[in-house]
């Protein structure tokens, strides 16, 4: 007997038959729904690489059982850009070199989108650092990440790097 759930995934309604109740949202996306943009870094909620938005809130998809998500609205990194137009957070990440290897990047970006929506950090660099600290970047692109989140928060391009000290 396989449970089935109904999702709104990146704006589209999907009915998903779960072959196994143990499946996490992360493994559902990556291994079953051909959406591997969301990354697995630790599989236990410690690194943030798997961050997606569930009903507008950022969650670790590795800690979320897919079977609990009936009716949920889910946004992944693949659903962020509007066609060829990058989301402002995506554009700011490129401009501020906010990644190196790019593996934690989908999670960082989804977390930044969530943080900005939460409106808890504003343009305060210390608060941005704190709010982004659930997402580990081993390449340590933190300087660029912090600047990118502030730039996207401002919604405008062209902040000076010197402001980051």
């Amino acid at each position: 007997m396989s449970p089935s759930i109904s999702l709104t995934l990146n704006g589209a309604k999907r009915d998903v038959a779960l072959d196994d109740p143990r499946v996490t949202l992360l493994d559902l996306l990556r291994e079953r729904l051909a959406l591997p943009g969301t990354k697995k870094g630790c599989d236990r909620g410690q690194c943030g690489a798997c961050t997606v938005l569930v009903n507008g809130r950022r969650v670790n998809s590795c800690l979320t059982l897919a079977a609990t998500l009936d009716g949920a609205e889910i946004t992944t990194i693949e659903g962020l850009a509007a066609g060829d137009d990058l989301h402002p957070v995506q554009a700011a990440f490129i401009e501020n070199d906010a990644f190196q290897c790019g593996y934690c990047t989908p999670g960082q970006i989804m977390s930044a989108v969530g943080l900005i929506a939460e409106d808890r950090a504003g343009e305060d660099l210390e608060r941005i650092r704190e709010g982004m600290s659930g997402n580990i970047c081993r390449c340590a692109a933190y300087h660029g990440i912090t600047l990118a989140v502030r730039q996207a928060t401002r919604g405008s391009a062209g902040i000076k790097k010197d402001d980051a000290a």
Binding site: R30, A34, P36, E78, L86, Q90, A91, I94, F99, T105
Partner: peptide
């Protein structure tokens, strides 16, 4: 490779199925 990496389309090894 910036656009690929910020849109989730950069294919890492385990992304292949």
């Amino acid at each position: 490779d910036g656009v690929a990496k910020v849109t989730g389309t950069a294919t890492f090894a385990a992304d292949n199925t």
